[in-house]
Design a protein around this nucleic acid. Structure first.
Lengths: 225, 225
DNA sequence: GCCGCGGTTCAGCCCACGTTCAGGATGCGG
DNA sequence: CCGCATCCTGAACGTGGGCTGAACCGCGGC
């Protein structure tokens, strides 16, 4: 599955590349608009992540040019929240979806998966661990056939842990993936959400789904605890 | 697996080279920034370890130049704790991870492995000795199919001994690799941790995994004892 | 406006872990 | 057999990482 990222902020570009490669995507990066357009026309991608604010040629122009050239690769646009460029304009120029900065990696991944699914290029994803199932598409979580209501954040944390089931995941990794790239708050928030998840997923069932590895991070038990 | 180390402190550079070569990496060293940049562009490395404080051209610049040249080799930055340079700036310029000095060698190695894993360049690592298996990724240690809980330090010591299974390893080597390079405490701590490991790994199974070589150090029995 | 909910911050608590220390065992050379 | 160096071992101690409940804040719905 090939992805093209067109983004000039190196930090974001690098983070996206890293994350997507870890998910098994083949990733190319272009750091400005003209280069992005060139790469998109020369290679066949399954999806393109396209920033709007770009040096040289902005994202709208890139998107427009591609569509005029009859290139229908799904495009996910990245827009800044603070006006200047309009969200809706993204869809007008032929983008398939957009995401406003700042955003978290799991949300981006979900959107990309959604685009791929719509274009019929990928199989559905459902995570399982023992009697626990998590479905990012329908946003449903159930354990032992009882449905568990989760808030957006709780769900995102759980989804990330499920993707890395069995592995030790550090708190900073969770923070980097589930919260905004720009998040500068108290890292203790991760502990708080683990607490929420344990309360909803462990206590009613008398089991331990999420282990604490002191000094290293957390580990989701792939057998469901 | 090729590694480039860009570091001007010869003592550290040499220590890293030695350690990584012992791990089977092919190691090149550059002693200043311009040289490092040149080597990174001329050769293909799997990972680059890049100090920030460098004569000539600092680490940020090197990283930035590489990324602008579309070189996406994973970069692990080494930063000093005492301000002056900011940790976060490392990621801004396109580094993939950073490590603050002082750090221990096993931590560095773990980070390098993590980078390689994320970029899909390496196969999973699990250490085995007889019926003992140690998995750094999941932080699992099991003997004869029973899971043994270990603390972070215990795990680090065991991991180091496993990597050098069959060899005689001196106490100071263990100290240098598992503790900070700057550690100035009682070396007796190594004996204490060997004791802990023996209690957890030997006594319940009536075997001797770690031999004492009086006057020389310890040796982990590759057959599991 | 008011209310309720989700997200975030904060402060206090607790205990596991890392480290130190001192006394006891064990091996080795003379 | 003695003396010394090395290693083993249990216990004591202090710290910080992690846990938790509650307060706070902002937003959307009624």
């Amino acid at each position: 599955m090939r992805v093209l990222i067109v983004e000039d902020e190196k930090k974001i570009a690098a983070a996206l590349r890293r994350g997507l490669e870890a998910e098994g995507f083949a990733v190319d990066v272009a750091l400005d608009g003209t280069d992005g357009l060139w790469m998109a026309t020369e290679h066949a991608y399954d999806v393109i992540v396209l920033d709007i604010m770009l040096p040289g040629m902005n994202g709208f122009k890139v998107c427009e040019s591609l569509r005029e050239a009859r290139n229908w690769t799904p495009i996910l646009m990245l827009t800044a929240k603070d006006g200047e460029y309009d969200q809706a304009e993204a869809l007008d120029t032929g983008a398939d979806d957009y995401l406003t900065k700042p955003f978290s990696f799991v949300v981006l991944l979900a959107r990309i998966r959604a685009l791929l699914r719509r274009s019929g290029r990928s199989e559905p994803v459902v995570y399982r661990a023992g009697d626990l199932t998590v479905d990012p598409v329908t946003h449903h979580c159930r354990r032992a056939d009882v449905s568990i209501p989760l808030t957006a954040r709780e769900f995102a944390v759980l989804e990330f842990l499920m993707r890395r089931a069995g592995e030790v995941v550090s708190k900073s990794e969770i923070l980097d993936n589930v919260w905004d790239f720009a998040f500068e708050g108290d890292p203790n928030i991760v502990e708080v959400y683990v607490r929420h998840l344990r309360r909803k997923l462990d206590e009613p069932f008398g089991r331990q789904l999420i282990d604490t590895i002191r000094g290293a991070g957390y580990r989701l038990n792939p057998t469901g605890g």
